[in-house]
């Protein structure tokens, strides 16, 4: 009888722990500020956007378009850019579009997945580029190139197009979103200050991510399990009927 009760309690606790381990749902971005309708033309003039905002810009083929967005520790940012190409009749051939992401120190960041480079055929009306960065870490050694909390620059441009297509009007749309990487990627440590953070707004969970992670569930669950196991073990050795 008692054993079943103990196992039941244990199971319940484990379940509770597992529930705690599930990462909190990503916060919904508030659309209070209107999305920018311009893009910068250099790192220095990069237009700041918020996560979840859809920024647009009118530009010419060949322009280098810059935006910057914030990302905090524990987030895995994804940048998605859609370019509405000039009318097919005015174009002369295929064009390759490119999306580059740099961190706040202007260091190139690798896209762990996504298609940051795509060839648009002459008849295509638009081309969509994506780049998912590695998970942002709260701290990294100075020699490493790991993504750190702070601003991230996005550069969108045509990489290769027929010379005659340069200067034709295009429309660009950029959106940066971030997914919470969850407790599995939770880390400690922090930077003295986020990288180039003056220009962008702090993300909802703060630069160093939220203090909460699924690891609290696992650790607390483990502690409770330990205590119960101890009580269980103790009870096993002292059989009640013998006493």
């Amino acid at each position: 009888m008692r054993f079943t009760r103990i196992t039941r309690t244990l199971g319940g606790l484990l379940l509770a722990g597992a529930a705690l381990a599930v990462p909190a749902a990503p916060a919904v971005a508030d659309d209070e500020k209107p999305a920018p309708t311009e893009a910068g033309t250099a790192f220095r003039t990069a237009v700041a956007i918020e996560q979840g905002q859809k920024a647009t810009a009118d530009a010419s083929t060949g322009d280098y378009l810059y935006w910057q967005f914030p990302a905090g520790a524990g987030q895995q940012p994804t940048v998605k850019a859609t370019v509405t190409l000039p009318e097919a009749s005015t174009r002369n051939g295929d064009a390759t579009w490119r999306l580059d992401v740099f961190d706040g120190l202007r260091r190139r960041q690798a896209c762990s997945s996504g298609e940051p480079l795509r060839r648009a055929a002459r008849e295509d009306a638009s081309v969509t580029l994506t780049c998912t960065l590695r998970t942002v870490r709260p701290w990294a050694e100075k020699w490493s190139n790991d993504p750190l909390p702070g601003a991230y620059y996005v550069r969108l441009t045509v990489g290769d197009a027929p010379d005659r297509d340069m200067g034709l009007p295009v429309k660009a749309e950029v959106e940066a979103t971030a997914e919470d990487a969850g407790g599995a990627r939770a880390e400690g440590g922090s930077l003295g200050a986020p990288l180039h953070a003056k220009a962008v707004a702090e993300p909802e969970d703060g630069w160093d991510g939220s203090w909460w992670s699924g690891r609290w569930g696992w650790t607390l669950g483990g502690a409770v399990l330990c205590a119960l196991a101890a009580v269980g073990g103790y009870t096993l050795t002292r059989h009640p009927r013998r006493r």
Binding site: G222, A223, L225, A229, A230, G232, Y234, L236
Partner: peptide
């Protein structure tokens, strides 16, 4: 982690019981 903590607890309980 759970296995280690649970196992340690059980061992400690048994030890103290005995």
């Amino acid at each position: 982690l759970l296995l280690v903590l649970g196992g340690t607890g059980l061992l400690a309980g048994l030890l103290f019981g005995w």
